[in-house]
Computed example of a mutant assay.
Amino acid sequence: MKVSLVVSDLSGGGAIRAFLLGQVIRKLNYEVEVVGFQFGQELYGIPPQGIPVVSIPGQQYPQFVKSIQTLLPKIDGDIIYAVKLKPSSFGVSLLKKWFTGRPLLLDMDDWELSWYGGDQWSYQPGSLRQVYRDLFKPQGKLRFPDDPLYVKWTERWVSLADQITIDTEFLKQRFGGVYLPNGKDTDLFDPGRFDPDSSRQRYGLQGYKVLMFPGAPRPHKGVEDVLMALDYLNQDDYRLVIVGGSPYDDYDDRLIQQWGRWIIQIPRSPVETMPEIVAAAHVVVVPQRDTLTAKAQFPLKLTDGMAMGKPLLSTRVGDIPEIIGDTGYLVDPGSPEQIAETLTKIFDHFGEAQAKGWQARQRCIENYSIDSMAIILEEVINKLR
């Protein structure tokens, strides 16, 4: 059996969840492919080995219709698995389902409308002239395939999916579906395979207290709160290591401009290299802020730290307290002072913090491993037969 994972934008964050699902599907001994549009210059993430990726250049309407026509024949799996509730993934997947009768799964790891204000958002052009501009001008907003207006329409079609997978309680309450966490390959992410001091030396981090954020900073992810905490502490041996960076805008540059003293940036790396990088961390920080977008997410960085047995510092937002339980350190969102106090506590009692990290790894193996995800997904797929 072959599963086609359909991604709205391979140059955006949805590719990471698709690659994870691809690893789970391979664990079930199914053939898998990742198929999707690419609106940016390069892939957002580097695919795991053995997972083929087929990308079609994304365009605005009306040219996007031709892009759809090009993509549809590439979706040749026995099961269609749309990643994200967007017109360019779920909408296109519905077309394939209607044409072929193949079963359709929908995966959601975000509430897409949360990026625009949630249920309060509405399209208010103000005049027919503005509607014309939005539809026909070169930069007209309604020419973009995943404009929030189209996303809002697409939400009405959720019931047309044969099965739904979600990764947070927020999404379950809103859309239903089967809980499928943002897990980790705990065999690949095995701290026993790496020496932290050697990793720190390799990446130029020796001599520092390494706080690591292994992902793309965005305002709702709270990286600024960690940097403000480092200003409070004002200790020269602290560094925040950001792995990769934001492909969306110049947010990274703005962080560096204001807080460059504390930041070390490591280039985006393939998943096979990430365990060695995370091994260099003393503490993994996931300081989500209290926003709609954050509440709907299961931060993948949590399981990066948990799988590698690292002390984990995060915030009381969404499912995070339930995910890490008592195996990490929690502070209130948007509280640099609490972050600073907790960092001091961690490094003053680092043996205790390391013990919590080991407990976090055991929790990750039991609840958030590729193996545990595979058990859940196999049950979902069996219901399609």
Rank of each mutant, 00 (worst) to 15 (best):
V271C: 02
D249W: 06
S269L: 13
Y238T: 09
T291I: 05
V278N: 02
V278T: 12
N367W: 09
I323F: 11
Q235D: 15
E337A: 12
E276A: 10
N367A: 07
G309M: 03
R254L: 13
Q359K: 13
P247N: 01
D290S: 13
T327M: 02
I264G: 02
I256S: 11
I376K: 08
C364G: 08
I320T: 06
V284W: 00
R289S: 12
C364N: 09
A279N: 11
I375W: 11
S369R: 02
E276F: 08
D371G: 07
S269T: 14
E341C: 03
S335G: 03
R363Y: 10
I263G: 11
T315G: 03
A360K: 07
Q258C: 09
V284K: 00
G318M: 07
V380I: 10
P247K: 00
Q257M: 11
Q362C: 02
Y248W: 12
I339N: 02
I323T: 10
G245H: 01
P321I: 01
G244D: 11
L302I: 13
L313S: 00
F350D: 00
I277K: 07
G305H: 03
Q258T: 10
M274T: 06
Q235I: 14
R363K: 13
L292M: 14
G334A: 04
F298P: 06
I346G: 01
G357I: 04
F298G: 01
S314G: 04
T293M: 13
Y368F: 15
E341P: 00
L255V: 02
Q265C: 07
D332K: 09
S369K: 03
H349E: 14
D319G: 05
Q354I: 12
H349A: 13
G244I: 06
T342V: 14
L240S: 03
I242S: 03
E322A: 14
V241K: 01
Q362G: 04
I242H: 03
R289W: 08
D253A: 14
K345Y: 11
V380Y: 09
G318R: 02
D348E: 15
A374F: 08
D326S: 11
M308G: 09
V241A: 04
P333G: 02
L343Y: 07
L302N: 07
W259T: 07
M274K: 00
T303A: 06
T344G: 08
P247Y: 09
E352S: 14
L233T: 08
W259Q: 04
E341D: 15
P333K: 05
Y251E: 12
P299T: 06
Y248S: 10
I263N: 08
A353L: 08
A340Y: 05
I324T: 03
N234M: 02
E337S: 12
D319Q: 07
R363I: 08
F350I: 03
